[in-house]
Design a protein around this nucleic acid. Structure first.
Length: 266
DNA sequence: AATGGGACCTGCGCGC
DNA sequence: TGCGCGCAGGTCCCAT
């Protein structure tokens, strides 16, 4: 699932590949994924634009265009951007004036794209919490103290902190040795700091690896990210903990599969 | 007010 | 072999 490290990887890949390129035309194979505006307006609004800059906010990817508008893309779970593409996308293909193609694909039809005048005024963006790498330890501690919610669903809340999903929430909590169902406010100062460092460590390493290719995630080139080999708990139900050999448990929390070591995480 | 659960979707793996 | 079911999860929406 594309979370912060995966979207950041795609952003960096895109920056190297398509900055300055001009969109000549667009093919829409399934208009449902175009959230705004209507498909014909979307196509007309993009034709002739150049890609000026690419930004990431949480899990959202923003392509800033030469006409001042922005293409806002959320990959949700199975969205993919492929470049150079073939035009054989199941959702949308962007044809550049140099003949190359950017394919936007999606298996489950959850991902969406929209063409906006001002991406900063989009509700979802405005409600986002701080970027993990912009957040300071002290601030993070205060935010945790103010909440009584279970820590794992809280970390996945985009309005609390931006970009963390199920996978990186459980990996961070394992590293910090914290049980995922602990109330946020019950964490000691030391635990809060440990968690802060764990989040930074996990996200940093995942970005260095180009993300985690579980399910359908691939980089812009179509190649996989390599961080899945470093997962310590995610998807490892009933397998032995790398630290203590205890079997990894899976419980539903926040409606999602939550993996943890019952011995290492208290 | 905060929290939990279902809906949205489709491919895959499992058990019978 | 083949079918049906559960699961995967980001976000929105509704109910409690």
């Amino acid at each position: 699932m594309p979370e912060l490290p995966e979207v950041e990887t795609i952003k960096r890949d895109l920056k190297k590949a398509i900055i300055g390129k001009q969109i000549a035309r667009i093919s829409v194979y399934n208009p449902i994924v175009i959230r705004f505006p209507a498909a014909d307006v979307f196509k007309k609004g993009l034709a002739g634009c150049r890609i000026k800059n690419i930004v990431r906010k949480g899990k959202v990817l923003i392509l800033e265009l030469s006409n001042g508008k922005s293409l806002v893309i959320h990959l949700k779970m199975t969205g993919q951007l492929i470049y150079p593409g073939t035009g054989k996308s199941n959702r949308v293909s962007f044809y550049f004036s140099d003949g190359t193609i950017l394919d936007f694909k999606d298996q489950r039809l959850f991902a969406d794209v929209q063409l906006l005048d001002d991406w900063r005024s989009l509700d979802f963006i405005r409600r986002l919490g701080p970027e993990p790498f912009d957040l300071r330890n002290e601030e993070f501690k205060n935010k945790l103290s103010a909440k009584k919610t279970k820590i794992k669903p809280l970390l996945m809340e985009q309005g609390f902190i931006a970009g963390i999903g199920n996978l990186y929430a459980v990996e961070s909590l394992f590293r910090a040795g914290i049980h995922p169902a602990r109330p946020s406010s019950s964490l000691s100062d030391g635990e809060k700091e440990k968690l802060f460092k764990a989040i930074h460590g996990v996200l940093t390493e995942a970005i260095q690896c180009g993300g985690s290719s579980v399910d359908t995630y691939v980089r812009l080139s179509g190649k996989k990210g390599s961080y899945a080999a470093h997962h310590r708990v995610y998807g490892r139900q009933d397998e032995p903990c790398f630290n203590c050999k205890t079997h990894i448990k899976r419980i539903p929390l926040g409606g999602r599969g939550t993996y943890f070591c019952p011995k290492c995480q208290k």
